[in-house]
Amino acid sequence: MQRKISKPSLLLLIVLVGFPQMSETMYTPSLPDIARHLGASNNVIQLTLSVYFLGFAIGVFCWGRLSDSIGRRPAMLWGILVYGLGSFGCYLANSADWLMACRCIQAFGASTGSVVTQTMLRESYDAAKRHALFAQISAALAFTPALGPLIGGWIDQALGFKAVFFVLVLISIVLLSYAWNALPETRVTIPANIRISSVAKRLLTDSRIWAYGCLIGAANGVLFSYYAEAPFIFIEYFHMNPGVYGFFGIFVALSSIGGAMLSKKWTSRRGPQSMILTGSFIAALGALCLLCLTLSGMQASAGTLTGMVICTFILLLGIGMSLPNCLSLALTRYGDVLGTAGAIFGLGYYLIISLITSGMSLLHNGSLATMPLYFLGLTAAMVLISRWLAKTATA
Rank of each mutant, 00 (worst) to 15 (best):
S67V: 07
Y237T: 07
F88V: 02
G152Y: 00
I257L: 14
W154N: 05
N325T: 00
G320Y: 03
V60F: 06
S198F: 10
A218G: 04
D156L: 06
K4A: 15
G307N: 08
A40R: 05
S255T: 06
N325K: 04
V252N: 08
L384V: 11
V116R: 04
I276K: 01
A381S: 15
I310S: 08
P231G: 08
V222E: 04
L389N: 12
G258F: 05
A146M: 11
F61N: 00
L49Y: 07
L141I: 10
L13E: 09
Y178S: 13
M298N: 07
A260K: 03
Y245K: 00
I34L: 02
D33K: 10
I45W: 05
L368A: 08
T294R: 03
M22T: 09
V164I: 11
G113L: 03
A57I: 12
S207I: 15
M100E: 09
F108N: 06
F143Q: 00
K162H: 15
N220M: 14
I14D: 00
C102P: 00
M371R: 01
I250T: 11
V44R: 10
G359S: 09
W154K: 03
I216F: 08
S225N: 07
I257T: 13
C311T: 03
S274N: 13
I257E: 08
L77R: 02
P231E: 10
M261P: 01
I190D: 09
G152D: 01
